[in-house]
Write a protein that binds this DNA or RNA. Structure first.
Length: 595
RNA sequence: GCCCUUGUAGUUCAAUGGAUAGAACGGAAGUUUCCUAAACUUUAGAUUCGGGUUCGAUUCCCGGCGAGGGUACCA
């Protein structure tokens, strides 16, 4: 049993014996004692004052402290400051705690089995008309980390992606390529497929803007100009041809999308994310239409005179929501309903999590209600993992204004910076290992930078100030890991074991504090899942590492003469490394053996 | 207009209603005959404003101000 639990029980008993009233488990607030006070665990006794009728918190804390010292062997001594009871826990209790961490190779994580709940996580969800950018990076990293965290908590996870591969925006790229492409391909130009297609999307916009400007100079209002744009008319015509299944247009569509997918795959591979099942909107939107028709028949939706189909959500405090346009074509919501149906057919889903930006909060509120009405068991409880936007110092990224931060460029730049940093420190050579370390460290810096922030909050990224490699960063953590591994290698060479934990070792406060931190990893992993927050793990690992670095600086391991202390420190270090590796793994961040 | 989110050092981020609001970067000053100095130590510096609830509020409630997002035929 963990020390906290044991103490909490003893505290409950103590209060009950002393005051004939027993607090509930959740009323026992035990926390790590702050650095400036003596002790390891602190109990806040304020909540007990009213129920016990004791006026003076110090009096209650002192009485309870005495009781614990007399009745709970793990409590060595105590002190009271204001309403806080600081408890000092005996060394052998700490050693026992470290041993329970040490003897569990997969400490902190649970393995799912065939009876575990099935959780589907949708993330990434790109459009096929442009390459992935910084916003997608946050989405991908959060989605992947969340999948790892859910798995570590004993869920069966299916990672999924819905690719928006059809629609007017795709037609814009296709039209531009047809008009101005001269048959350019990724092979002929050497461009990555998604970037090539993205360039034509930008080209469309450029020509379109020029056309509008010319029309407005000719005396039209902006609205009139947009309505009479030939380019836009052609794009719309292309979309109709696509929907009608025109062979030539479909072939062009397939070809260009294939280029994009090849590019995406490369980006995903570099980022280290992946999917178990990919859905395409071109395959799901038809299902959505069918489902809406079904809803129409059941009276869940209604049709207006112009033929458009709506859902009345005023009873839920929302508005009326469009589900099919007057021309019968589907909208975003329709497609998401269709995708939900296919997924439900494919998997026995218990929980569905959508990793989508917070600008779509309203959409998912509506989707949840609609899916529920349409009879999806998990519709009501679907989770919209709503994360904040990544903003640049000058505001939101706008792809049309060229202020996007490209995902491939950013990853490459990070890896390059890692290589340069390593060179400046005189650590790099031309070996493959050096290149691999640069990759791990560069991506680690990027991933940690994004994941350490509370996902719900908007965050700022300044491309001019490159991401740090010192301080609260991925490389800081990776470096500590590499240093521990180096010590363990040397210990191994010297014939020292990091496997056996000795008994009766005197412990210093830094060591106790480290054990205490290690022991809370399993709680952190659970909390990260409950709160849907990889940031909780990131911040935990950082604190652990900071503490370890202080220990490493203040005490010797290999040079320690007391053999029992030396073995203990090796075991402690090995377990810190184990937890770093595990925690970083949950964030999708690799750790190097040396750097 | 209406709805949602948000406001913490110069900057980027922390803080289950609990002790003197923590870090990092940047600023100032230090630590290497010693297991990897991508480290460690010291130092200056912050809760948008006004009320309320509470023994106790960055946290919960009300109001003002600021920022972002959404708002029925874009996704």
């Amino acid at each position: 049993m963990k020390i906290e639990q044991k103490l909490a029980q003893a505290i409950q008993n103590g209060i009950s014996v002393l005051y004939r009233w027993q607090p509930a488990t959740e009323q026992v607030q035990l926390s790590k004692t702050r650095r400036e006070f003596e002790g390891h665990l602190t109990l806040n006794v304020f909540p007990f004052l009213k129920p016990t009728g004791v006026r003076n918190p110090q009096e209650l804390a002192t009485a309870l402290g005495n009781y614990l010292v007399d009745n709970e062997p793990a409590v060595e001594k105590y002190n009271v400051i204001k309403g806080f009871l600081n408890l000092t826990v005996a060394s052998d209790a700490w050693l026992g705690l470290l041993n329970s961490v040490h003897t569990d190779p997969s400490y902190g994580t649970k393995s799912p089995d065939e009876n575990s709940p099935l959780v589907m996580i949708e993330y990434s969800s790109p459009n096929t008309n442009k390459p992935l950018h910084l916003g997608h990076i946050r989405n991908n990293l959060l989605g992947y980390a969340l999948a790892e965290i859910m798995t570590a908590n004993g869920n069966r996870v299916v990672k999924t992606n819905i690719v928006n591969d059809r629609g007017i925006h795709i037609c814009k790229s296709m039209l531009a390529w047809q008009k101005w492409g001269n048959g350019e391909t990724p092979q002929s130009s050497g461009k990555k497929g998604d970037h090539l297609v993205g360039d034509y999307y930008v080209a469309f916009d450029k020509h379109y803007k020029a056309e509008i400007k010319a029309l407005m100079e000719g005396g039209l209002t902006q609205e009139e100009a947009e309505a009479s744009s030939e380019l836009m008319k052609e794009a719309r015509a292309m979309l109709r041809q696509w929907e009608a299944g025109d062979a030539e247009i479909r072939a062009l569509w397939s070809m260009m999308n294939a280029w994009v997918y090849e590019g995406f795959d490369e980006t995903y591979r570099k980022m280290g994310v992946g999917f178990d099942k990919i859905y395409y909107e071109s395959e799901t939107y038809i299902e959505g239409k069918a489902k809406v028709e079904e809803g129409l028949a059941k009276g869940i939706c209604y049709q207006k005179e112009d033929g458009s189909v709506w859902a009345d959500l005023t009873a839920e405090g929302l508005d009326h929501k469009l589900l099919l346009r007057s021309d019968g074509t589907s909208v975003y919501m329709t497609q998401d309903i269709g995708t939900a149906k296919l997924r439900y057919d494919d998997f026995p889903i218990n929980h569905m999590i959508y990793v989508v930006g917070n600008e779509q909060n309203y959409h998912f509120q509506v989707l949840s209600i609609l899916l529920d009405k349409l009879g999806f068991a998990w519709g009501k409880d679907l989770v919209h993992f709503s994360y904040g936007m990544v903003e640049l110092p000058e505001g939101k990224m706008k792809s049309r204004e060229g202020t996007v931060v490209d995902a491939d460029d950013l990853m490459d730049a990070m890896i390059e910076t890692a290589r340069e940093t390593s060179q400046e420190l005189g650590k790099s050579d031309d070996s493959e290992e050096t290149a691999e370390i640069a990759r791990i460290v560069g991506l680690g810096a990027l991933k940690y930078f994004i994941l350490k922030v509370d996902p719900r909050k908007n965050m700022t990224f300044n491309p001019k100030e490159s991401i740090d490699f010192n301080g609260n960063t991925g490389p800081f953590i990776q470096y500590t890991y590499a240093r521990i591994r180096s010590v363990l290698r040397k210990a191994d060479e010297a014939g020292l074991s990091a496997a056996i934990l000795p008994k009766d070792v005197p412990l210093n406060e830094k060591e106790i504090s480290l054990i205490q931190s290690l022991a809370s990893y399993d709680v952190i992993v659970r909390q990260a899942a409950d709160d849907y927050s990889p940031a909780i793990i990131a911040n935990y690992i950082y604190e652990l590492v900071k503490e370890y670095n202080q220990f490493y600086h203040d005490f010797s391991i290999l040079r320690e003469e007391n053999k029992a202390v030396q073995s203990f420190r090796l075991v402690l270090s090995a377990n810190v490394a184990k937890v770093i590796r595990s925690g970083m793994g949950l964030l999708g961040i690799e750790v190097p053996e040396r750097m």
